[in-house]
Amino acid sequence: MTITRESVQELLKSEKFNDRITGINQLRQLDASVAFELIQPVLTDSNARVRYAAISQLDTIGDRDLPATLAILRDRLFNDSEPDVQAAAADVLGALKLTEAFEDLQQLYHQTPEWLVQFSIIATLGELGDLRAFPLLEEALTSPIELVQTAAISSFGELGDTRAIPILIPFATNSDWQIRYRVVQALARLGGAEVRATLEALANDTVEQVASEAKQSLAASCDNQ
């Protein structure tokens, strides 16, 4: 069956949930400009799973009209009733590097009671690459939710600001091995003599995944010298 603008549009207008999801998936096979036009109505669909699928797809077609995409994502960040959809909007803002939304992300992080939304905001800040995120990432390291802490560590590594090194090093002895694992990855990105000493210690970690990652990071740094 040939997928056309008309066939996809018919699916997206269907009253059946499965049809609308199928239509969203088939948008990938159309020209991005056409897909961006057709996806508009389902971005505010009555079904949260449809909205989630539609918002998530903006990371590949949203660059057709970045101002319009920014407005859409801001609306879903603050006005969608489902945390999954809000989280997806945050993810896409990072993927498209829409730094204009940094203050929106910061505001929502402090307003939302939903850990998933907080996690997605912190996780996307590294990808966003805006150095204004530094204080917010530092704050997230004190979150009672370990997944948020882990996301902050990873985002510090992506952000590439070496001021994070002395902040991250204490987490190298955290009781949660997954946090130590993320510390290895973040510090390896940041580099430096102080980082090397910590990675050498982590290369002897009791958890094989952590030790192996540290050894690989040390080997990679030697190869790059």
Rank of each mutant, 00 (worst) to 15 (best):
D59G: 02
I55R: 14
P144T: 07
T173R: 07
I24C: 15
S14M: 00
S154E: 07
D84R: 15
F171R: 05
T2K: 14
L125V: 07
S120H: 08
L43M: 10
D176E: 11
A90V: 03
E208L: 04
I55K: 15
G94E: 06
I169G: 05
E114G: 02
S155I: 02
A220T: 06
L190N: 05
V195L: 05
R28T: 05
G191V: 05
L159W: 03
L136T: 09
G191T: 04
L73P: 05
E208H: 06
A219F: 10
A48G: 14
A89H: 08
P170L: 11
R76W: 08
A151D: 04
S217M: 01
Q185D: 15
E15Y: 10
G62E: 09
L66G: 14
L98W: 03
D63N: 10
I55W: 12
R20A: 02
N224Y: 04
I121C: 03
L199V: 04
L73F: 11
Q86F: 02
P83Y: 15
A152R: 01
A87N: 06
V117D: 13
T162K: 12
A186Y: 02
D19N: 06
A68P: 06
L70I: 15
E213V: 02
D65M: 11
V85H: 11
L77S: 02
Q216W: 10
A88Q: 09
V50K: 13
G126D: 00
T142M: 00
T60G: 08
I165G: 01
I21R: 00
V148M: 13
F119I: 02
P144R: 01
D63M: 07
T142E: 04
S46V: 08
F17I: 06
S7W: 00
S175Q: 07
L131W: 04
L30Y: 05
I24N: 15
V210N: 04
F78L: 13
R74F: 15
P144Q: 07
D80R: 05
R20F: 04
I3C: 05
A95E: 15
F78I: 11
T124M: 11
G192I: 01
S212W: 09
L202Y: 01
F17T: 08
S154C: 03
I122H: 02
P67G: 12
A219D: 13
G160M: 03
K97R: 09
K215C: 04
A152H: 00
A48M: 15
I61G: 00
T44P: 11
A95M: 12
L108P: 13
T112N: 13
E10P: 11
D75Q: 09
V183M: 00
